[in-house]
């Protein structure tokens, strides 16, 4: 189940947000999309999820443009947006049931699937708790569970750990890696935090709307002749480490 982006361009009025971006996600891996704030990551996500219409270029799912298979794309994608999209007044289960219903899953299917997912994300005992009563890290985990509810093959996470403390960030990162490994899930993990990327992760470096690197993390270091990805990133973008740590 492959996603390929070809020559993608997008502009807001006169401001170019994405310029000639092309890449292909590595199936069954956590693909990191690394870029500072304002690099164009969220715009790219909005295009991948069809929340924005394409202006130029194309996005292919299994070699077929997504514009021709919108429903199939939405069945195959699980998305965690940068901004929380949970309904705070509803419980964890009610949020999941709503999402499930929009994907044609019955309440029984949702309950069955939700229990397993939440158990795995260490939230098994919070099924009936109100979202408002959960902390930021737990809310993110609920969003991940929700994104996986309809059994997608591709998971898109747009800065899913933003605003969380280090422990919560590491925990979510670990959970997603486990899911990726166990379920052969293809993940696109947008981040501006280098610490969330492993040396053998496929990495896309996006800066000022352009794709500056598309290789494994250690290969990027090798190409830039640096010892760390942080140094390579600094060399590519001209940005200091301080931009990488929240």
């Amino acid at each position: 189940m492959g996603i390929e982006v070809r020559n993608l361009c997008f502009r807001y009025g006169t401001r170019q947000a994405l310029q000639d971006v092309s890449f292909r996600l590595v199936d069954g891996k956590l693909n990191a999309l690394l870029g500072p704030n304002g690099a164009g990551k969220s715009t790219l996500y909005a295009l991948l999820t069809q929340l924005f219409n394409l202006q130029q270029g194309e996005i292919l799912l299994n070699g077929v443009p997504i514009s021709r298979q919108s429903r199939k794309l939405k069945q195959q994608l699980g998305v965690v947006f940068q901004q929380s999209t949970l309904d705070l007044d509803l419980s964890v289960l009610q949020n999941l049931e709503y999402h499930g219903a929009l994907h044609g899953l019955s309440s029984r299917d949702v309950r069955h699937q939700a229990s397993a997912l939440l158990e795995r994300l260490e939230l098994g005992d919070r099924l009936h708790d109100s979202i408002r009563s959960l902390n930021g890290g737990h809310r993110r985990r609920v969003e991940i569970a929700r994104a996986l509810l309809h059994r997608p093959s591709i998971l898109l996470l747009d800065e899913a750990t933003v605003g969380l403390d280090t422990a919560a960030r590491q925990s979510i990162n670990r959970h997603v890696r486990d899911l990726c490994r166990d379920q052969a899930l293809t993940v696109l993990w947008a981040t501006h935090l280098i610490e969330e990327i492993d040396s053998d992760d496929p990495v896309l470096v996006l800066h000022q709307g352009r794709l500056h690197a598309d290789a494994l993390a250690h290969e990027i270091c090798h190409m830039q002749q640096t010892r760390t990805l942080a140094a390579a990133f600094e060399q590519i973008t001209g940005l200091k480490e301080s931009t990488q740590c929240a």
Binding site: T85, Y98, L102
Partner: peptide
Amino acid sequence: EMGSMKVLLMSPL
């Protein structure tokens, strides 16, 4: 504004 519209728009229906 809150972003929950995205949940609706991501439905395949």
